[in-house]
Simulated scan of single mutants.
Amino acid sequence: MPLNIPTFDDVLTAAARLAGLAHRTPVLTSRTFNDLTGAEVFFKCENFQRGGAFKFRGAMNALLALDISARARGVVAYSSGNHAQALAYAAAIKGVKAVIIMPRDAPELKVRATRGYGAEVIFYDRYSENREEIGGRIAAERGAALIPPYDHPDVIAGQGTATLELIQEAGPLDALYVCLGGGGLLAGAALAAAECAPACRVVGVEPEAGNDGQQSLARGEVVTIEVPKSIADGAVVTHLGAHNFPVIRDKVAAITTVSDDALIEMMHFFAERMKIVVEPTGCLAAAAVRSESQSLRGQRIGVIVSGGNVDLTRFASLIMAAGDKTPREPAMARAGPETFR
Protein backbone atom coordinates (compact mmCIF):
# COMPACT_ATOMS: atom_id res chain seq x y z
CA MET A 1 0.00 0.00 0.00
CA PRO A 2 1.47 3.40 -0.96
CA LEU A 3 2.33 5.81 1.81
CA ASN A 4 0.16 8.84 2.44
CA ILE A 5 2.88 11.51 2.20
CA PRO A 6 1.65 14.86 3.58
CA THR A 7 1.65 18.04 1.47
CA PHE A 8 1.56 21.77 2.13
CA ASP A 9 -2.23 21.65 1.74
CA ASP A 10 -2.27 19.30 4.73
CA VAL A 11 -0.29 21.90 6.71
CA LEU A 12 -2.92 24.52 5.84
CA THR A 13 -5.70 22.13 6.88
CA ALA A 14 -3.88 21.53 10.17
CA ALA A 15 -3.54 25.28 10.75
CA ALA A 16 -7.31 25.65 10.37
CA ARG A 17 -7.98 22.75 12.75
CA LEU A 18 -5.58 24.10 15.37
CA ALA A 19 -6.86 27.68 15.32
CA GLY A 20 -7.88 28.56 18.86
CA LEU A 21 -6.44 25.32 20.26
CA ALA A 22 -2.67 25.61 19.74
CA HIS A 23 -0.89 28.75 20.89
CA ARG A 24 0.63 31.00 18.26
CA THR A 25 3.98 31.03 20.04
CA PRO A 26 6.23 34.11 20.12
CA VAL A 27 9.13 34.84 17.80
CA LEU A 28 12.06 36.31 19.75
CA THR A 29 15.39 37.83 18.78
CA SER A 30 18.58 38.44 20.75
CA ARG A 31 20.99 41.27 19.99
CA THR A 32 23.84 39.32 21.55
CA PHE A 33 23.14 36.19 19.50
CA ASN A 34 22.95 38.30 16.34
CA ASP A 35 26.29 39.89 17.22
CA LEU A 36 27.84 36.47 17.87
CA THR A 37 26.69 35.00 14.58
CA GLY A 38 26.65 38.05 12.33
CA ALA A 39 23.18 37.00 11.25
CA GLU A 40 19.63 38.13 12.01
CA VAL A 41 18.16 35.17 13.88
CA PHE A 42 14.48 34.58 14.64
CA PHE A 43 13.65 32.06 17.36
CA LYS A 44 10.23 30.38 17.10
CA CYS A 45 9.69 29.58 20.78
CA GLU A 46 7.66 26.38 20.99
CA ASN A 47 8.68 26.05 24.62
CA PHE A 48 5.66 28.35 25.15
CA GLN A 49 3.34 25.92 23.36
CA ARG A 50 0.61 24.07 25.24
CA GLY A 51 2.22 21.09 26.92
CA GLY A 52 5.59 22.84 26.70
CA ALA A 53 6.60 21.73 23.19
CA PHE A 54 5.72 21.76 19.49
CA LYS A 55 4.37 18.22 19.82
CA PHE A 56 0.95 19.53 20.82
CA ARG A 57 0.40 20.72 17.25
CA GLY A 58 0.83 17.30 15.66
CA ALA A 59 -0.90 15.39 18.42
CA MET A 60 -4.00 17.57 18.39
CA ASN A 61 -4.16 17.65 14.59
CA ALA A 62 -3.97 13.85 14.40
CA LEU A 63 -6.60 13.50 17.12
CA LEU A 64 -8.98 15.91 15.37
CA ALA A 65 -8.50 14.08 12.07
CA LEU A 66 -10.05 10.93 13.61
CA ASP A 67 -13.77 10.47 13.21
CA ILE A 68 -16.00 10.46 16.28
CA SER A 69 -16.25 6.67 16.49
CA ALA A 70 -12.47 6.31 16.38
CA ARG A 71 -12.02 8.89 19.12
CA ALA A 72 -14.50 6.99 21.28
CA ARG A 73 -12.21 3.93 21.16
CA GLY A 74 -9.25 5.93 22.44
CA VAL A 75 -5.70 6.55 21.27
CA VAL A 76 -2.31 4.95 21.89
CA ALA A 77 1.14 6.46 21.48
CA TYR A 78 4.77 5.74 22.33
CA SER A 79 7.11 8.54 23.30
CA SER A 80 10.06 9.51 25.49
CA GLY A 81 8.12 12.47 26.78
CA ASN A 82 6.95 15.44 24.72
CA HIS A 83 4.62 13.56 22.36
CA ALA A 84 3.41 11.60 25.39
CA GLN A 85 2.44 14.81 27.16
CA ALA A 86 1.05 16.38 24.02
CA LEU A 87 -1.28 13.53 23.11
CA ALA A 88 -2.34 13.07 26.73
CA TYR A 89 -3.16 16.79 26.93
CA ALA A 90 -4.98 16.84 23.59
CA ALA A 91 -6.96 13.74 24.56
CA ALA A 92 -7.91 15.32 27.90
CA ILE A 93 -9.17 18.45 26.14
CA LYS A 94 -11.34 16.37 23.81
CA GLY A 95 -12.42 13.78 26.38
CA VAL A 96 -10.59 10.88 24.72
CA LYS A 97 -8.93 8.00 26.60
CA ALA A 98 -5.15 7.86 26.02
CA VAL A 99 -2.59 5.12 26.66
CA ILE A 100 1.06 6.15 26.42
CA ILE A 101 4.05 3.78 26.22
CA MET A 102 7.14 5.45 27.74
CA PRO A 103 10.73 4.26 28.35
CA ARG A 104 11.56 3.46 31.94
CA ASP A 105 14.30 6.08 31.86
CA ALA A 106 12.04 8.88 30.59
CA PRO A 107 12.44 12.13 32.56
CA GLU A 108 10.27 11.96 35.67
CA LEU A 109 8.89 15.42 34.93
CA LYS A 110 7.48 14.19 31.63
CA VAL A 111 6.05 11.03 33.18
CA ARG A 112 4.29 13.05 35.90
CA ALA A 113 2.90 15.49 33.36
CA THR A 114 1.61 12.69 31.11
CA ARG A 115 -0.18 11.05 34.03
CA GLY A 116 -1.35 14.44 35.23
CA TYR A 117 -3.26 14.91 31.97
CA GLY A 118 -5.10 11.67 32.73
CA ALA A 119 -3.30 9.21 30.46
CA GLU A 120 -2.47 5.62 31.36
CA VAL A 121 1.31 5.12 31.22
CA ILE A 122 2.90 1.76 30.33
CA PHE A 123 6.69 1.47 30.61
CA TYR A 124 9.16 -0.40 28.40
CA ASP A 125 12.96 -0.81 28.18
CA ARG A 126 14.17 1.26 25.22
CA TYR A 127 17.40 -0.79 25.01
CA SER A 128 15.81 -4.25 24.83
CA GLU A 129 12.19 -3.80 23.72
CA ASN A 130 10.60 -2.42 20.55
CA ARG A 131 8.15 0.38 21.29
CA GLU A 132 6.52 0.19 17.84
CA GLU A 133 5.66 -3.45 18.39
CA ILE A 134 4.32 -2.75 21.88
CA GLY A 135 2.25 0.18 20.67
CA GLY A 136 0.80 -1.77 17.75
CA ARG A 137 -0.13 -4.69 19.98
CA ILE A 138 -1.86 -2.55 22.62
CA ALA A 139 -3.72 -0.53 19.98
CA ALA A 140 -4.98 -3.76 18.38
CA GLU A 141 -6.00 -5.27 21.73
CA ARG A 142 -7.97 -2.17 22.69
CA GLY A 143 -9.29 -1.19 19.29
CA ALA A 144 -7.64 2.20 19.70
CA ALA A 145 -6.01 4.46 17.11
CA LEU A 146 -2.21 4.46 17.14
CA ILE A 147 -0.73 7.97 16.85
CA PRO A 148 3.07 7.66 16.72
CA PRO A 149 5.28 10.62 17.62
CA TYR A 150 6.57 11.42 14.13
CA ASP A 151 5.77 8.78 11.49
CA HIS A 152 2.21 9.90 10.77
CA PRO A 153 0.96 12.28 8.04
CA ASP A 154 -1.35 14.26 10.32
CA VAL A 155 1.35 14.61 12.96
CA ILE A 156 3.82 15.89 10.34
CA ALA A 157 1.27 18.36 8.96
CA GLY A 158 0.50 19.68 12.43
CA GLN A 159 4.19 20.24 13.17
CA GLY A 160 4.51 22.20 9.94
CA THR A 161 2.24 24.93 11.33
CA ALA A 162 5.10 26.20 13.55
CA THR A 163 7.18 27.08 10.49
CA LEU A 164 4.14 28.49 8.71
CA GLU A 165 3.64 30.92 11.60
CA LEU A 166 7.34 31.76 11.82
CA ILE A 167 7.57 32.79 8.16
CA GLN A 168 4.29 34.68 8.33
CA GLU A 169 5.72 36.67 11.23
CA ALA A 170 9.42 37.04 10.40
CA GLY A 171 9.16 37.20 6.62
CA PRO A 172 11.37 35.39 4.08
CA LEU A 173 14.34 33.47 5.49
CA ASP A 174 17.66 32.48 3.96
CA ALA A 175 17.88 29.38 6.14
CA LEU A 176 15.81 27.51 8.70
CA TYR A 177 17.40 25.27 11.35
CA VAL A 178 15.20 22.59 12.90
CA CYS A 179 15.92 19.96 15.55
CA LEU A 180 15.74 16.39 14.29
CA GLY A 181 14.73 13.28 16.17
CA GLY A 182 12.28 11.10 14.29
CA GLY A 183 11.73 13.71 11.60
CA GLY A 184 8.14 14.86 12.04
CA LEU A 185 9.05 18.46 12.88
CA LEU A 186 11.72 18.66 10.16
CA ALA A 187 9.44 17.22 7.48
CA GLY A 188 6.60 19.58 8.43
CA ALA A 189 9.00 22.52 8.48
CA ALA A 190 10.32 21.60 5.04
CA LEU A 191 6.80 21.42 3.59
CA ALA A 192 5.94 24.89 4.93
CA ALA A 193 9.26 26.49 3.99
CA ALA A 194 9.24 25.13 0.45
CA GLU A 195 5.91 26.85 -0.21
CA CYS A 196 6.22 30.02 1.89
CA ALA A 197 9.93 30.79 1.39
CA PRO A 198 11.15 28.80 -1.64
CA ALA A 199 14.69 30.19 -1.42
CA CYS A 200 15.05 29.10 2.23
CA ARG A 201 17.64 26.40 2.93
CA VAL A 202 16.25 23.92 5.48
CA VAL A 203 18.77 22.24 7.80
CA GLY A 204 18.06 19.47 10.29
CA VAL A 205 20.12 19.20 13.49
CA GLU A 206 20.73 15.97 15.43
CA PRO A 207 22.73 15.04 18.53
CA GLU A 208 26.30 14.11 17.63
CA ALA A 209 25.78 10.71 19.24
CA GLY A 210 22.86 9.78 16.97
CA ASN A 211 23.21 10.90 13.35
CA ASP A 212 20.87 8.43 11.68
CA GLY A 213 19.16 11.26 9.80
CA GLN A 214 22.46 12.58 8.45
CA GLN A 215 23.39 9.09 7.27
CA SER A 216 19.94 8.59 5.76
CA LEU A 217 20.07 11.82 3.76
CA ALA A 218 23.54 10.95 2.47
CA ARG A 219 22.51 7.43 1.40
CA GLY A 220 19.06 8.29 0.10
CA GLU A 221 17.41 5.65 2.29
CA VAL A 222 16.43 5.28 5.94
CA VAL A 223 19.37 4.15 8.07
CA THR A 224 18.77 2.51 11.46
CA ILE A 225 21.30 2.87 14.28
CA GLU A 226 21.65 1.61 17.82
CA VAL A 227 19.88 3.62 20.52
CA PRO A 228 22.11 6.69 20.99
CA LYS A 229 22.95 8.24 24.34
CA SER A 230 22.53 12.00 24.56
CA ILE A 231 21.10 14.58 26.95
CA ALA A 232 18.76 15.49 24.06
CA ASP A 233 16.23 12.85 25.13
CA GLY A 234 13.61 14.05 22.64
CA ALA A 235 15.96 13.21 19.76
CA VAL A 236 17.11 9.80 21.02
CA VAL A 237 15.68 7.67 18.21
CA THR A 238 17.08 4.97 15.94
CA HIS A 239 15.60 5.89 12.55
CA LEU A 240 13.47 8.35 10.60
CA GLY A 241 9.86 7.63 9.72
CA ALA A 242 8.58 6.21 6.45
CA HIS A 243 6.16 9.12 5.99
CA ASN A 244 8.65 11.88 6.72
CA PHE A 245 11.77 10.58 4.98
CA PRO A 246 10.55 11.25 1.41
CA VAL A 247 9.87 14.89 2.39
CA ILE A 248 13.25 15.22 4.12
CA ARG A 249 15.07 13.59 1.20
CA ASP A 250 13.47 15.94 -1.35
CA LYS A 251 13.23 19.23 0.57
CA VAL A 252 15.97 19.34 3.24
CA ALA A 253 19.32 20.78 2.14
CA ALA A 254 21.50 19.30 4.87
CA ILE A 255 21.56 17.58 8.24
CA THR A 256 24.24 18.47 10.77
CA THR A 257 25.06 17.47 14.34
CA VAL A 258 26.06 19.17 17.60
CA SER A 259 27.63 17.87 20.80
CA ASP A 260 25.99 17.62 24.21
CA ASP A 261 28.44 20.26 25.44
CA ALA A 262 27.16 22.67 22.80
CA LEU A 263 23.59 21.99 23.93
CA ILE A 264 24.47 22.78 27.54
CA GLU A 265 26.12 26.05 26.52
CA MET A 266 23.01 26.97 24.50
CA MET A 267 20.74 26.19 27.46
CA HIS A 268 22.87 28.55 29.52
CA PHE A 269 22.64 31.27 26.87
CA PHE A 270 18.85 30.99 26.58
CA ALA A 271 18.43 31.16 30.36
CA GLU A 272 20.90 33.94 31.05
CA ARG A 273 20.45 36.16 28.00
CA MET A 274 16.91 35.54 26.76
CA LYS A 275 15.35 34.55 30.10
CA ILE A 276 13.72 31.39 28.76
CA VAL A 277 13.93 27.74 29.83
CA VAL A 278 14.76 25.42 26.94
CA GLU A 279 15.30 21.67 27.19
CA PRO A 280 18.44 20.12 25.63
CA THR A 281 16.61 18.89 22.51
CA GLY A 282 15.16 22.36 22.01
CA CYS A 283 18.70 23.78 21.81
CA LEU A 284 19.82 21.65 18.85
CA ALA A 285 18.98 24.13 16.09
CA ALA A 286 20.32 27.21 17.87
CA ALA A 287 23.55 25.41 18.81
CA ALA A 288 24.11 24.53 15.16
CA VAL A 289 23.59 28.13 14.07
CA ARG A 290 26.16 29.21 16.65
CA SER A 291 28.71 26.65 15.44
CA GLU A 292 28.14 27.42 11.75
CA SER A 293 27.97 31.20 12.16
CA GLN A 294 30.90 31.94 9.84
CA SER A 295 28.89 30.70 6.87
CA LEU A 296 25.68 32.50 7.94
CA ARG A 297 26.87 36.09 8.29
CA GLY A 298 24.47 38.65 6.85
CA GLN A 299 21.64 36.15 6.49
CA ARG A 300 18.15 35.94 7.96
CA ILE A 301 17.95 32.68 9.90
CA GLY A 302 14.95 30.94 11.44
CA VAL A 303 15.40 28.62 14.43
CA ILE A 304 12.74 26.31 15.85
CA VAL A 305 13.10 26.12 19.63
CA SER A 306 11.22 22.88 20.03
CA GLY A 307 10.40 22.71 23.75
CA GLY A 308 11.09 23.54 27.36
CA ASN A 309 10.16 20.38 29.26
CA VAL A 310 13.12 19.75 31.54
CA ASP A 311 13.32 18.92 35.23
CA LEU A 312 14.43 22.10 36.99
CA THR A 313 17.00 20.35 39.17
CA ARG A 314 18.59 18.79 36.09
CA PHE A 315 18.30 22.09 34.24
CA ALA A 316 20.17 23.89 37.01
CA SER A 317 22.93 21.28 37.14
CA LEU A 318 23.42 21.39 33.37
CA ILE A 319 23.61 25.16 32.99
CA MET A 320 25.93 25.40 35.99
CA ALA A 321 28.26 23.09 34.08
CA ALA A 322 28.40 25.65 31.29
CA GLY A 323 30.09 28.06 33.72
CA ASP A 324 31.42 31.20 32.15
CA LYS A 325 31.59 29.88 28.59
CA THR A 326 28.77 32.12 27.38
CA PRO A 327 29.43 35.78 26.48
CA ARG A 328 28.80 38.52 29.02
CA GLU A 329 27.73 41.39 26.76
CA PRO A 330 24.28 42.86 27.48
CA ALA A 331 21.50 41.38 25.38
CA MET A 332 17.97 42.27 24.52
CA ALA A 333 15.13 39.95 23.58
CA ARG A 334 12.04 41.30 21.93
CA ALA A 335 8.75 39.93 20.71
CA GLY A 336 8.14 39.58 16.99
CA PRO A 337 5.49 41.41 14.99
CA GLU A 338 2.73 39.52 16.78
CA THR A 339 2.51 39.13 20.54
CA PHE A 340 2.20 35.77 22.28
CA ARG A 341 -1.33 34.63 22.73
Rank of each mutant, 00 (worst) to 15 (best):
221 E>H: 10
225 I>T: 14
108 E>T: 08
78 Y>K: 00
228 P>T: 07
237 V>N: 05
121 V>M: 10
63 L>A: 05
136 G>N: 13
34 N>F: 04
295 S>P: 00
223 V>D: 06
323 G>R: 15
327 P>M: 02
30 S>E: 11
76 V>H: 01
179 C>V: 01
34 N>C: 12
73 R>A: 14
334 R>K: 01
279 E>P: 04
19 A>E: 15
149 P>T: 05
93 I>R: 13
15 A>M: 05
203 V>Q: 02
190 A>K: 06
302 G>Y: 10
102 M>R: 01
66 L>T: 03
228 P>K: 02
4 N>W: 06
107 P>F: 12
95 G>S: 10
60 M>I: 07
96 V>D: 14
237 V>Q: 03
199 A>I: 00
231 I>S: 06
141 E>L: 14
300 R>V: 05
60 M>F: 14
48 F>P: 01
231 I>Y: 11
203 V>C: 07
178 V>Y: 02
246 P>G: 07
275 K>F: 11
48 F>A: 11
236 V>C: 10
312 L>F: 14
321 A>D: 15
291 S>G: 09
335 A>F: 15
119 A>P: 07
117 Y>E: 10
332 M>G: 07
172 P>A: 15
227 V>Y: 14
63 L>H: 03
239 H>Y: 09
26 P>M: 05
326 T>G: 12
51 G>Q: 06
185 L>P: 03
207 P>R: 00
15 A>H: 14
262 A>M: 13
140 A>G: 02
18 L>Q: 05
109 L>P: 04
85 Q>Y: 08
313 T>M: 14
183 G>N: 04
231 I>N: 03
278 V>G: 04
337 P>W: 10
30 S>F: 09
300 R>C: 08
311 D>K: 04
166 L>R: 02
237 V>G: 03
179 C>L: 01
204 G>K: 00
255 I>W: 13
120 E>F: 02
109 L>Y: 06
134 I>D: 07
111 V>C: 05
326 T>C: 08
228 P>S: 09
103 P>G: 03
162 A>R: 03
58 G>L: 12
119 A>N: 09
142 R>S: 06
165 E>F: 12
137 R>F: 08
302 G>R: 05
255 I>V: 15
333 A>K: 07
257 T>Q: 08
172 P>Q: 14
334 R>D: 12
319 I>A: 12
182 G>N: 01
269 F>C: 03
340 F>A: 09
169 E>Q: 15
272 E>I: 04
140 A>E: 15
122 I>L: 15
141 E>C: 03
336 G>M: 11
222 V>D: 06
262 A>T: 09
223 V>T: 06
253 A>G: 00
69 S>C: 03
34 N>T: 01
98 A>G: 06
231 I>E: 11
169 E>A: 07
329 E>S: 12
119 A>I: 07
290 R>P: 00
112 R>Q: 13
114 T>C: 14
245 F>W: 12
